[in-house]
């Protein structure tokens, strides 16, 4: 699978939002996507992804599936997107380890959107 552009990501987001209304993703109702392109990795996305995975495991959030996508530049990386039927799609920027802990504890576990971390995704000008 090729690395996705932001426009690809948006298409997927629209598709996933429709799909979420129809069915779960592999039986999971919450979908976490971490942008792992070069700029994301450079900004620490590896630690972000590992932290989310650790916390999802520790809390036993078995309705969550974690995947990754390519670069989310020029957005403030690491970027994490959360799809949840209750909250819809929410994108978070500059997700360091502490922010990753909060996303799992507050959004994934309790369904509360973290407004201070939330971003509107911006597409890179071509």
């Amino acid at each position: 699978m090729a690395k996705l552009s932001l426009s690809d990501l948006r298409s997927i987001r629209e598709r996933e939002e429709k799909n979420l209304k129809k069915r779960d993703i592999h039986g999971r109702t919450v979908h976490v996507v971490v942008a792992m392109g070069t700029s994301g990795i450079d900004a620490g996305a590896k630690l972000t992804l590992n932290t989310i995975a650790d916390d999802v495991e520790k809390l036993g959030l078995d309705n969550v599936i974690i995947t990754q996508t390519g670069s989310a530049a020029p957005n403030p990386e690491p970027v994490v997107e959360v799809y949840m039927p209750k909250t819809g799609l929410v994108a978070y920027g500059s997700v360091d380890k502490d922010a990753a802990h909060r996303i799992v504890e507050e959004h994934l576990k309790n369904g509360k959107i973290l407004e201070d971390l939330r971003i509107e995704l911006v597409e890179k000008e071509q």
């Binding site: 592999h26 999971r28 995975a53 650790d54 999802v56 495991e57 809390l59 036993g60 959030l61 078995d62 969550v64 599936i65 974690i66 995947t67």
Partner: peptide
């Protein structure tokens, strides 16, 4: 496959 609880462990 480490993409969900249980599997990560």
């Amino acid at each position: 496959v480490p993409d969900r609880a249980g599997c990560i462990k």
